[in-house]
């Protein structure tokens, strides 16, 4: 009642024992999920999402067909048990639509859609559990699922949240932290170091923002390393399973691009 949890205590620890610039534990599971062409389960701490990618495949509906490139369709669903409030978020929920729109606009320029004219790529994001950094998990999961599906990407997209407590910046926020301090989600492309997305969830001052921006770019590189290891591991596992180790280096466009990430 009287005392809330301290966001950053005098010893420099956050409420979950991390220091300012420590990211939460990341686990990535790229194994086959159902009928999807590529899928990924990613966890950042206690936040967990499953992303399934179908396609490229023939567009189901004519009006969604684009003659010179693939159409990207994103749907987000939140499991009823995933979040604080036990209420089912409908597909029409504002926050969900917003996340879907952000994913679509973030990945449209990254996916080489012109290779697949008149076709469709479906991205289904399922939020399994939430404890802050939802958008970051959705974006990182989508990158992994697309790569896993063998869809050629110009670059990975790596996202992280950052916030400021008083004057101390911190990365990868939990729900508790997001509720308390101004924060933003930043997505970057590690190869070029270019930022593709910035969403401010709350008012943040310009000076503070620059600091977070720089930190988030560095943090993106760290997350990228984790993602690369996971994708490489998955490719090797598949190749071993197929018994043809010689094909590793030339597994198509996808793998070639992968070397640069």
């Amino acid at each position: 009642m009287a005392s809330r949890i301290e966001i950053l205590n005098d010893g420099g620890y956050r409420s979950d024992g991390r220091r300012q610039y420590e990211l939460r534990d990341i686990t990535i599971d790229l194994s086959q999920q159902g009928q999807a062409d590529g899928s990924a389960i990613i966890t950042h701490g206690l936040t967990q999402v499953l992303v399934s990618v179908f396609g490229p495949r023939e567009a189901k509906q004519r009006r969604e067909t684009i003659h010179d490139r693939a159409n990207i369709n994103v749907e987000v669903a939140v499991a009823a048990f995933s979040t604080g409030e036990r209420r089912k978020r409908s597909r029409g929920d504002k926050r969900i639509l917003e996340i879907a729109a952000i994913i679509k606009s973030t990945f449209e320029p990254v996916i080489q859609t012109s290779i697949y004219p008149r076709s469709q790529i479906d991205i289904f994001v399922q939020v399994l559990q939430q404890d802050g950094g939802l958008l970051q998990a959705c974006i990182n999961g989508t990158t992994l699922a697309l790569a896993n599906a063998g869809i050629p990407l110009l670059d990975f997209v790596c996202a992280v949240t950052g916030g400021v407590h008083s004057t101390s910046p911190m990365l990868d926020l939990t729900t508790l932290e997001e509720n308390d301090i101004p924060h933003a989600t930043v997505a970057m492309m590690p190869r070029t170091g270019k930022v593709t997305l910035v969403t401010m969830e709350t008012r943040l001052h310009v000076d503070r923002f620059e600091e977070i921006f720089r930190l988030a770019i560095d943090a993106g590189k760290v997350i990228h390393r984790e993602m690369k290891i996971a994708v490489k591991g998955r490719t090797e596992a598949l190749v071993t399973a197929m018994g043809s180790a010689s094909k590793v280096a030339s597994g198509g466009d996808n793998d070639e691009l992968m070397q640069d990430y």
Binding site: D16, G17, R18, E22, R24, D25, G45, L46, F81, T83, G84, E85, R86, Q129, Q130, D131, T174, T175, L176
Partner: peptide
């Protein structure tokens, strides 16, 4: 009723 998730490193 709210489900609260906490972790600690």
């Amino acid at each position: 009723v709210i489900k609260v998730l906490r972790e600690r490193y």
